[in-house]
Design a protein around this nucleic acid. Structure first.
Length: 509
RNA sequence: GGGGAUAUCGUCUAGAGGUUAGGACGAGGGAUUUUCAGUCCUUAAGCCGGGGUUCGAUUCCCCGUAUCCCUACCA
């Protein structure tokens, strides 16, 4: 039987990174085994906090971003649809009637109040909590009476009262649970919607799912799911419970650990392959290969359930940044430029492009003024970026109108704009740069080295003040590439401005 | 309270009944250099505890401990 795996998110907003890691595992397994990757929307919880209709777009965007497109899902359909649980109600209805008729499930008329009180009392007594099964043993007459009265009800699983349920997890092996300790799980809620357990079993069976891959947090309730499969008379798929992703405090990763929503990572400028690479490694390893960076084809080839770890993994933002930096550095500059432009526009460093119906002339000017400039600059910072959004801070000084000393780092000014040889240096540079036949990094360097000689100072004593005068800061790409990228006009303008406005010590004249 | 899972450097992990317990992130040091970054070299850092099995356990078993997860008409 060919492998079919599913990613089953709930539309509660932008998916959690742990959730997407599971999707990645699903996808890798499907690709590795030549199977199908299916996505199914689990929207059976209709409470306003848990049902965010727009959340579905975040899910789609995340999958697209990562490049892990389902073979069958609600967007494109498929032979086992519909792939949205709220559209499958009649299916659940038919199946639950069958299970009730078989005696493996029963209607429960207990009110929430009674359930709450019962639980409270159990907690106070220190006894295990759980439904007391009152309705399980209702007489047919009582049952008929409740139904006749139109009492609201839920349907519960009639959990076996003794014996054990053995779950074979592909990562951890056999796990044994005592049935008497399992609750009579609600399968159909009073609003008619199925709960996770029921919908999951029905859908996974009907969709031909061969491997249920889901977080470790499902492990303790797994026997209930297994019994639902039994009650329905379905064969069991394979179960895979990867370890949880946790925060630095070892607790299940959540909002309070910082960013966990996938959308945040997309906004920050993490590359898809970096995120995928990092997430895969959080709970899986290629074995004896001492390597952290894997291409997607390599991951598909090497992936296996056997390589999955069984203990939780702390989400390490530092390592993610390192991996992302690696991918940024090894990307084609053109790609990075294209990805960075939106950040520059958003920050107001470059304007929005002219509209489609603008004149060719306008478009040409935009391109030459902004795009060509950005194209010169961004590659200079490529090896410094950890995330794309950093480009704004990194290249800001290229775009901003520096009007000395406004926009200059005070510390940089204090350190270098008071040195004795600054004035002759600037004067010589302005003269030399104006006359430079070719505005290239090499020519600029030759020129500055010559000036250094004339001034009789160390190279560093020329480099640093020149950098500060031209950029307003002490750090950045190599000085000559910086000046080259800045262009002759901007460079001269900035040097002249410093020359004019600097607070020169009185010369005694 | 009950149940389940897990335990190798700070973090992600590899590993085998006998190894100098390997790699990576991060941290420290050094080199390169015009700064930062990068790159290269380098250092420190680990088998939870106690029993048992065994000639020999970090590795296998048991117990303990710790941590996490579940304990909803949420998934």
């Amino acid at each position: 039987m060919s492998v079919r795996v599913r990613y089953a998110p709930s539309p509660t907003g932008s998916p959690h990174v742990g959730n997407l890691r599971t999707a990645i595992y699903d996808w890798l397994l499907a690709r590795k085994e030549g199977g199908k990757f299916i996505a199914r929307l689990e929207d059976t919880d209709r409470s306003p906090e848990r049902y965010v209709p727009e959340g579905i777009y975040d899910i789609e965007a995340s999958l697209r971003f990562l490049g892990i497109m389902p073979d069958e899902w609600w967007v494109t359909g498929g032979s086992a649809g519909p792939y949205v649980q709220s559209q499958r109600l009649p299916i659940y209805q038919a199946e639950i009637e069958r299970v009730i008729a078989s005696g493996s499930a029963y209607r429960c008329y207990c009110t929430r109040e009674r359930l709450d009180e019962m639980r409270k009392a159990q907690q106070e007594r220190g006894t295990p909590t759980g439904y007391d099964r009152r309705c399980r043993f209702l007489s047919p007459e009582d049952r008929a009476r409740h139904d006749a009265e139109g009492k609201p009800s839920v349907v519960r699983l009639a959990m076996p009262l003794d014996g054990v349920t053995v779950l074979h997890d592909e990562i951890r092996g056999d796990i044994t649970y005592e049935n008497r300790l399992q609750d009579d799980q609600v399968l159909i809620k009073s609003d008619g919607f199925p709960t996770y357990f029921f919908a999951c079993a029905v859908d996974d069976h009907l969709m031909g799912i061969t491997h249920i891959i889901r977080g470790d947090d499902w492990l303790s309730s797994a026997p209930k799911l297994v019994q639902v499969f039994h009650a329905l008379g379905y064969p069991l798929p394979k179960f895979v419970h990867p370890p949880l992703i946790v925060g630095a405090d070892k607790k299940k990763l959540s909002k309070r650990h910082g960013a966990t929503q996938f959308s945040w990572f997309m906004e920050q400028g993490y590359l898809p392959e970096a995120l995928l690479n990092f997430l895969v490694l959080l709970g899986w390893s290629a074995g004896d290969e001492n390597r952290e960076l894997f291409t997607i084809p390599e991951l598909i080839e090497k992936f296996s359930i056997a390589g999955m770890s069984e203990h939780p993994a702390v989400f390490d933002y530092d390592k993610l940044n390192w991996i992302n930096g690696q991918y940024i550095r090894s990307s084609e500059p053109g790609r990075i430029i294209g990805l960075c432009l939106p950040y520059l526009r958003k920050a107001g460093l470059i304007p929005e492009p002219p509209p489609g119906d603008a004149s060719d002339e306008e478009k040409r000017i935009y391109r030459e003024t902004w795009l060509d400039y950005a194209r010169r600059i961004i590659p200079l910072e490529q090896e410094r970026m950890k995330v794309l959004s950093e480009v704004v801070d990194l290249v800001g000084f290229f775009f901003e109108d520096l009007d000395y000393p406004n926009g200059y780092e005070p510390k940089a000014v204090a350190k270098w704009m008071g040195v004795a040889h600054l004035k002759p240096l600037l004067e010589k540079e302005i003269t030399a740069f104006s006359a430079l036949p070719d505005w290239t990094a090499a020519a600029l360097e030759a020129s500055v080295r010559e000036i250094t000689e004339e001034l009789g100072v160390k190279f560093a004593e020329v480099i640093h003040p020149t950098r500060v005068a031209a950029t307003g800061r002490t750090v950045g790409p190599g000085l000559f590439e910086t000046l080259w990228a800045l262009g002759r006009e901007r460079t001269l303008h900035r040097l002249r401005t410093v020359l004019e406005k600097n607070d020169w010590p009185s010369t005694g004249a």
